[in-house]
Design a protein around this nucleic acid. Sequence first.
DNA 1: TTTTGATTGAAAAACACTCTCAGAGAGCCT
DNA 2: AGGCTCTCTGAGAGTGTTTTTCAATCAAAA
Lengths: 152, 152
Amino acid sequence: MVSPPPYRTHPSPLESGLRSDGKRMTPQRKKVLSLFEEVGSGIHLSAEEVHSKLTISGEKVSLATIYRTLRLLVKMTFLNELDLSEGGNRFELLSHDHPDHHHLICIRCGRTEEFENNDVVNAGKEAAKSFGFKLLESSLNVRALCPMCLNK
Amino acid sequence: MVSPPPYRTHPSPLESGLRSDGKRMTPQRKKVLSLFEEVGSGIHLSAEEVHSKLTISGEKVSLATIYRTLRLLVKMTFLNELDLSEGGNRFELLSHDHPDHHHLICIRCGRTEEFENNDVVNAGKEAAKSFGFKLLESSLNVRALCPMCLNK
DNA sequence: TTTTGATTGAAAAACACTCTCAGAGAGCCT
DNA sequence: AGGCTCTCTGAGAGTGTTTTTCAATCAAAA
């Protein structure tokens, strides 16, 4: 017994974005994006974490597909890629309300805090302007030790 | 016409830094640091590039040693490590006159320009302080397109 | 439905980097 | 100068992350 599909759903942003580019909506892509929507913006997941979270909830998506999908979602601006290094990149839901937030990273345990700062955004703008570059995005990464790791 | 070596040279900063830590001055270490001094500060080299530059000038230093030496020179604050991602980290001579400079990177051709900005440095300090972190280093990476790449 | 070609999973490869270990050699001692 | 000790090096194996390959699958258009 299969329930009929809704008579006419508005295509999701993901679906219409894919369609307009000759790409297809697949369960795997939906699952990856949904996971990020569930955990909310401001949470940074590695490809491996996405994989294990999906596996735990009984969804089988191969790691290769997760990497492919993450790349795709970054290109489609659904996700933001963070190069905080130290064992793999991380991804977060791109919240268009907070386009230019920066990261404070504990290099020991990986704890990450976000902050915003207009001076930083302006510094990036000015620098780009003075060299004749077209700015795409700027990110300040502050490498530090969190209170827990400070006490060994 | 080669001038004779001075009878008694002051130990180089590298040599005295190594000595004071029970480490040894080796030709390999000298060659790697010399390369960075030759290319000057503001030039960012990857481990692979250091390797091939040395190989081309007839110096044989293994890649493993280059990685080891780069790590050492960063720890000794002779070099600065940049996480501009896209295929490996890069290293540059740390100029102690310009301790906190930031990077404007053309994501298409890799051209990189540096700039300084006190507001950025302060933003990093404030962020660390407000979360109770101990700041180690902050770097603003501005991803952009350079004038050449803008015209395709 | 059928067709078409994008997408997937699994495994292999690519990549950047680190480690292991035996031999070489830097620096300290006569 | 010669010897000793212990760090350093080179070669190659190993590691962790990400990408690619390729046959099979499946989404979407006809």
